[in-house]
């Protein structure tokens, strides 16, 4: 309950950002233009697909940006948080589904998937907190020299453990839920919208907006941003850095897990399912600027548009090649990303 608004709104911030960065303007204008083109030429269902995908990449990228901005960790295991979420949703939802088959219950069948998703987010949160306490906290206590590179390698190790651990315990088979709800798709004109798609998009938007409000308007959210900007200043006002680090990592993991859970209908759970989301999340943050959370939100959609364009004009097989070309251009033209990097530790080697 703030008496007045204490800071520029999201839109104002984006505007401010853009005034300082013409490249951002151009890219956003182009993205919107391409969205229209996609809508016209590839059809409205492609357009919807693009927007849904954009929401998901944004949700993944926000966590990545946050972890890099606040903790200076280039998180290579972020995709495995996605994987955790997918598995949890599967293992929570399938028993509910089985139960519903024998005992039909309209209320439960409506909220069943939500239970799976919330469970995924919670497990993700706990897993993130455990990872932070078990891995990064001890390293921080030992030394902060070469932090960025060392933590990068640590996340590589974590990824290894999680992927092969999943393989060990659950095996390499796919576990998917093709339909969360047994309802026919909504048809508007020529567009068929499945419930799953709508829900995935709503989840992404709700999670991002809630997270944004949390960051900008709550005491703890403000503390997270404070730590991202000046750690000593944060300690001076009484913020417990270790708490903020753990919280940040847990939140990022929870968001990725939520993404994995709500996309279970598209990406069935298997040990390396996280690789592609990881790749695209990195694509987003490199494009917009490392550690830039607002940029990551917009960037998710930019990347989704690029992806659709690639598929439409070059074919799916070039999905891996085009990002590199785009990134080379970005790094040559705007080395700090199109929205600029906002990272205190970026100067470290």
């Amino acid at each position: 309950m703030e008496a007045t608004r204490v800071q520029p709104s999201f839109l104002e911030r984006v505007m401010l950002n853009m005034r300082a960065r013409p490249a951002a303007w151009i890219v956003i204008a182009m993205t919107l233009g391409f969205l229209v083109i996609i809508g016209i030429f590839a059809g409205p269902s492609q357009l919807i697909n693009t927007i849904v995908t954009g929401g998901m990449w944004a949700l993944m990228a926000v966590g990545l940006a946050l972890v890099f901005g606040v903790m200076n960790i280039p998180h290579f295991a972020h995709g495995d948080s996605f994987m955790i979420g997918a598995y949890v949703a599967y293992f929570v939802f399938t028993p509910i589904q089985a139960y519903l088959r024998d005992n039909p219950n309209p209320f439960l069948s409506a909220v069943g998937p939500l239970i799976g998703w919330i469970a995924a987010a919670l497990v993700g949160f706990v897993a993130g907190a455990v990872m932070e306490k078990l891995v990064f906290y001890p390293l921080r206590m030992r030394t902060r020299r070469g932090w960025v590179m060392n933590t990068f390698l640590l996340t590589v190790g974590i990824s290894f453990v999680l992927v092969y651990g999943a393989n060990l315990i659950l095996g390499p088979n796919f576990r998917g839920v093709p339909n969360y709800w047994n309802v026919p798709p909504i048809v508007i004109g020529s567009v068929r919208l499945t419930m799953e798609r709508i829900a995935a998009f709503v989840v992404a938007i709700v999670a991002i907006v809630a997270f944004w409000i949390f960051l900008s308007n709550t005491r703890t959210g403000r503390a997270i941003r404070a730590v991202a900007q000046d750690e000593m200043g944060a300690e001076m006002v009484g913020i417990n850095l270790n708490f903020i680090y753990t919280l940040t990592f847990a939140l990022a993991t929870a968001m990725a897990a939520l993404a994995g859970a709500s996309l279970l209908f598209m990406f069935p759970a298997y040990p390396t399912v996280g690789l592609k989301p990881l790749y695209f999340a990195w694509y987003v943050v490199m494009l917009v600027g490392l550690g830039n959370v607002q940029g990551a939100i917009v960037g998710g959609f930019i990347v989704a548009v690029l992806q659709t364009l690639t598929q439409q004009f070059f074919g799916v097989s070039y999905e891996d090649v085009v990002p590199v070309v785009v990134m080379i251009l970005v790094l040559l033209l705007v080395p700090n990303g199109i929205f600029g990097s906002e990272v205190k530790g970026i100067q470290e080697q």
Binding site: V6, Q7, P8, R219, R222, A223, R225, A226, Q229, D230, G233, A234, V237, G238, I239, E342
Partner: peptide, 16 residues
């Protein structure tokens, strides 16, 4: 200071 935050936000953080 938290350079990317408004004056008011800085002050509110002072009262963290």
């Amino acid at each position: 200071l938290f350079t990317n935050m408004s004056v008011r936000e800085n002050l509110l953080l002072g009262a963290y």
